[in-house]
């Protein structure tokens, strides 16, 4: 693996891995809290938020996008609550209605607005543009020590790395209260843990992961990574500490295998074109989950009768 790999594949691969890990970490807790759908909802409502932010500012940059996504998330939460109360339907259904409608509205907005000059279209929203995040100025592994070349790394890499480091740090620092309140919210409240704030913090962290990853890899990966690696990891162990490590392993494995298979898989099969890396990464994560369901050591626990 030489110059070509460093130039064309190194950065997309790194960004894919970082995005997968950033989403999988909060995904562990969302799944155990039976809130997996929230990750799904967030990654959908991000789209209209980002489109509106673009329409208002005319540029694609981090802060307007983050604010737009955050605004859309707030609108979504208010709508979900309103529909739940007025329509008297269960929260899951309210959530499903709101995030699909908002995503669809985002798609319509996107089609009607002039985004030809920027990387913002429906396909990009779903699959991202992982393959295009190449490192033009790299000439080989030596470029890793060349300040001029390093300065020309795609900015998405730094954004994604910052988000992943932030989420990792938050997970480590708040590990104990997160674990305790996820297991037993009442007891957590009784020992003084601010459980409502912690819940909100977890959702915001998931939103940060979704927004950071959305730009580079699209919403397909975000949705898959919130759920598949943690769900597969749960089947590997009966300890949360080890589950989270497994989820990181599965997220990384999905990103690497998915990227390689998307690039070379079709060629091996005799087809001409590579397929979407984001789509393949999500598919691989689903396959890993399927294998875990069939062969993982603790698969019997899921769905086993409770309180046996």
């Amino acid at each position: 693996m030489g110059a070509e790999f460093v130039q064309l594949s190194l950065t997309p691969l790194l960004i894919g891995i970082l995005a997968a890990i950033a989403c999988a970490l909060p995904g562990n807790f969302l799944i155990l809290r039976r809130q997996a759908l929230i990750g799904d909802a967030i990654s959908h409502v991000v789209l209209p938020g980002i489109v509106v932010a673009f329409l208002l500012t005319g540029i694609i940059s981090t802060w307007p996008m983050l604010l737009g996504a955050a605004g859309a998330a707030v609108v979504a939460v208010v709508l979900i609550e309103a529909i739940r109360r007025v329509g008297r339907i269960e929260p899951g259904a309210a959530m499903g209605v709101v995030f699909t409608s908002l995503f669809a509205a985002g798609v319509l907005l996107l089609e009607q607005s002039d985004t030809s000059g920027v990387h913002l279209d429906v396909e990009h929203a779903l699959y991202g543009n992982l393959e295009s995040l190449i490192w033009f100025s790299a000439e080989g592994w030596g470029s890793l020590a060349d300040p001029a070349a390093l300065a020309a790394l795609p900015p998405e890499l730094f954004r994604m790395a910052a988000a992943a480091v932030l989420i990792l740090a938050l997970t480590v620092i708040f590990w104990r209260p997160l674990k305790l309140s996820t297991f037993d919210e009442g007891f957590a409240g009784a020992v003084g843990i601010p459980t409502a704030a912690l819940s909100l913090g977890l959702v915001i962290t998931a939103a940060v992961a979704a927004v950071a990853a959305f730009d580079a890899v699209g919403s397909i990966i975000v949705i898959a990574m919130f759920i598949c690696p943690p769900a597969a990891a749960r089947l590997m162990t009966n300890r949360l500490e080890i589950q989270v490590l497994w989820s990181v392993v599965f997220a990384t494995l999905s990103a690497v295998l998915g990227y390689v298979l998307a690039g070379y898989g079709p060629l091996w099969l005799g087809a001409d074109n590579a397929v979407s890396a984001a789509g393949m990464i999500a598919t691989v994560s689903g396959l890993i989950l399927a294998l875990a369901c069939l062969f993982a050591p603790h698969r019997a626990r899921i769905g086993a009768p409770r309180g046996a």
Binding site: L32, I173, F174, W175, R176, P177, K179, L180, T182, F183, D184, G186, F187, V191, G192, I193, R234, T237, N238, R239, L240, Q243, R301, I302, A304, R306, G307
Partner: peptide, 27 residues
């Protein structure tokens, strides 16, 4: 007892250690 999910991935000793949360704090 029924207020929590006993399928949660943790061991008996870890649940008892949760009782020391105020002493152990975050880190």
């Amino acid at each position: 007892r029924a207020s929590v999910d006993w399928d949660f991935p943790t061991r008996v000793i870890d649940v008892v250690l949760m009782g020391l949360y105020r002493e152990l704090g975050l880190l």
